[in-house]
Simulated assay, not measured.
Amino acid sequence: MTTMKRSTKLKAIEEVAGDRDLMKALMKEALQEVLEGEMSEFLGAERGERTQARGGYRAGYYGRNLVTRIGKLELRVPRDRSGEFSTALFERYARSEKALVAALAEMYVQGVSTRKVKAITEELCGHRFSASAISTINKGLDDALARFAHRQLDETYPYLILDARYERVRDGGVIAHQAVLIALGINWEGKRQVLAVEMANRESQSSWKDFLLRLKERGLSGVEFVVSDDHAGLKKAIREVLTESAWQRCYVHFLRNALDYLPRKADDDCLQELRWIYDRRDIQEAQRDLAAWITKWQGKYPKLVNWVEENIVETLTFYRLPRAHHKHLKSTNMLERLNEEIKRRTLVVRIFPNTESCLRLIRALCVETHETWLEDNRYLNMAFLAEQKKELLRLAA
């Protein structure tokens, strides 16, 4: 019965996804609700609601088009009598959509696209593209993204998360994989921010070092704890540039690496029990469980156990943080989720026509995420870290 329900639901989803007109209608309805909600929040009252908190009145609508990847949507934007209401929906949504369209258009203009790309870009914007049209699209985007990329970092960020992903880019007629270096920070308000997004030919000590130095030039300070994977060049750059910071090796990457030291047919609880070590209350409990794990599996998997003994300490640094922060900072999962969203959007392009178009789209996506995070409630309660630091200073006095 459950399988039948799931199958019916999946079929319905596939039918909706395959019906472009229905998708456009659903998105239009959703965005229209967002606009109405913004107006209600601005006025302090729903339509027709009588309340002392009301700060104004509605005054009809005006039409405005929004270009999306499923076509052009005609929306009705609410007005208020004073003319003070404005919405950020168009600016925020259009930024990454324009970057995506521009990347596809560049592919078409440079003769490296397919008929499918041509159809997509023409449907999105309603006309064919020329080099001058692309230049116009890009200029406004690039100015805004440059301001974001070079802004001064006036706050301190005790937590820093670093990672890279790779995109395929056409460079001089050759398709190459280029690295996208990304840094996220958490400030003392407990809010997440995208601090930097840059391109490099590859991950190396020098590319990561330059990336971190540019962050410091922009004002990055107060970093106490850094999370990343085990990339050798990145580790060296962190030690060289962020000398005061503790380093946490992502435990998820560590467990994936552990598979290299296990036989392919291993089907017991060895790795699951190793993973449980990262859920302990404190370092003492984790070390006791680790010792028991080593004793249990040394005879059966000596290669794995020896490797774990040599490297696991790098993944246990998070235990020096307040317990409430453990699950957020023992891995790079926060950044991995952003990377998944980037991947979902860059797959549409597949191969970028140049480095600039790749960076433009990814930065635009990251700006959207950054702005959403700033509007969200705090991600972490930093009072726990502040209290812990006070206690450590008291004990040291």
Rank of each mutant, 00 (worst) to 15 (best):
D376L: 03
M27T: 11
K11L: 09
G18W: 09
W373V: 10
A25P: 13
L380Y: 07
E106D: 07
G60N: 02
R54A: 12
A292V: 14
R280S: 08
I161G: 04
D260S: 12
S206D: 03
R128Q: 14
E189L: 15
F129C: 05
K389Q: 15
C366A: 01
R6L: 04
L392C: 08
E38S: 02
A102F: 01
A291I: 10
E38I: 00
R281Q: 08
I161Y: 00
L73G: 14
R69F: 01
E106S: 11
R54W: 05
R280E: 10
G83H: 07
W293M: 03
L124A: 15
A105L: 00
A146P: 08
K327D: 14
S245I: 12
N339L: 07
L385S: 10
K235I: 09
H326N: 07
V197D: 08
E167G: 04
F352S: 03
Y278I: 07
L215T: 03
T68W: 00
Y261A: 13
L374Q: 04
V348R: 15
H370N: 00
E371Q: 02
L262C: 11
F90L: 01
E391H: 09
E336A: 10
R170L: 07
R20I: 05
L255D: 09
R345P: 05
Q205V: 06
V313I: 14
R214M: 10
A149S: 12
L255C: 11
D269S: 11
V117F: 03
R288D: 09
R47I: 08
Y157Q: 05
S86P: 06
V117M: 14
E29Q: 08
L361S: 04
N138P: 05
R192E: 06
K389I: 14
K327W: 10
L255S: 11
S82T: 07
A105R: 10
V34F: 02
K390R: 13
R378A: 11
E309W: 02
L234G: 01
L73S: 01
N339M: 04
L335A: 00
S228C: 02
F148Q: 05
E368M: 02
L162C: 02
R394M: 15
R192K: 12
K236L: 06
R58T: 00
L347K: 14
T3K: 07
V252K: 11
R323K: 15
L10R: 11
M199F: 10
Y166H: 04
V252T: 14
G299Q: 05
R79A: 05
L304A: 06
D267L: 11
C250A: 10
E203T: 00
T346V: 09
K118Q: 14
K330T: 10
P158I: 12
E240L: 01
F318R: 12
V313N: 09
T346M: 00
T317G: 10
A25W: 12
R92F: 03
N257P: 01
R288C: 12
S86G: 06
E391L: 15
R58F: 11
R165F: 13
L347N: 14
E285S: 02
A17W: 10
A105D: 09
W373C: 00
W188D: 12
W276S: 13
Y278F: 05
E84C: 06
A364N: 03
G37N: 00
I283V: 07
L329A: 13
E387D: 13
T346K: 11
F384S: 08
E74F: 04
L100S: 04
